[in-house]
């Protein structure tokens, strides 16, 4: 088999996951995209391991061992990540990562999205109202 097939497929899958991480808004969808990226890396590791075990007489099978480690670490990561998402959802009532801006710098976040100014103005109005009532 030509080595370019698995390499190209894993590159495409990785970039698909990259798009998902950058463009998604729900935290769980972001976790799904991270899983896609990790799987792309796994495919690369397996393909190069199968190639090197024959071409370079490499008997360590480091690619497959690393793939098993990556799968395990991905399972641990998804467990911790979902626990964090659930904790945030319990405290904030949302799993929208665009709304979690408490550590952002500046007085008010200015979103580049078209519905950003309305939302920010609404939030600022609520904040002023809260301060006035307090």
């Amino acid at each position: 088999m030509h080595l370019a097939y698995p390499a190209v497929l894993s590159a495409l899958l990785f970039c698909t996951g990259l798009y998902g991480v950058l463009a998604r808004r729900n935290a769980i969808l972001v976790l799904m995209s991270v899983e896609l990226m990790l799987n792309a890396v796994n495919l690369n590791l397996v393909a190069f391991d199968v190639w090197l075990s024959r071409a370079a007489e490499e008997t360590l099978h480091s690619g497959q061992a690393l793939t098993l480690f990556t799968i395990t670490i991905a399972a641990a990561e998804i467990g911790i990540g979902l626990a964090i998402v659930l904790a945030v959802h319990r405290n904030r009532g949302t799993s929208d990562i665009d709304k979690l801006r408490d550590t952002a710098e500046g007085p008010e976040p200015e979103g580049p999205e078209p519905d950003g100014p309305d939302h920010d103005a609404l939030t600022a109005g609520q904040a002023e109202k809260a301060e006035a009532t307090a």
Partner: peptide
């Protein structure tokens, strides 16, 4: 479901995919 910076993300992903595929195909 999609954030507002969808087009920036699409640009980044397409450029990364083109670069990676080109390099990988050329190398192997």
């Amino acid at each position: 479901a999609d954030s507002g910076n969808r087009w920036v993300a699409l640009t980044v992903a397409v450029v990364a995919a083109a670069t990676l595929v080109w390099v990988v195909v050329d190398a192997f």
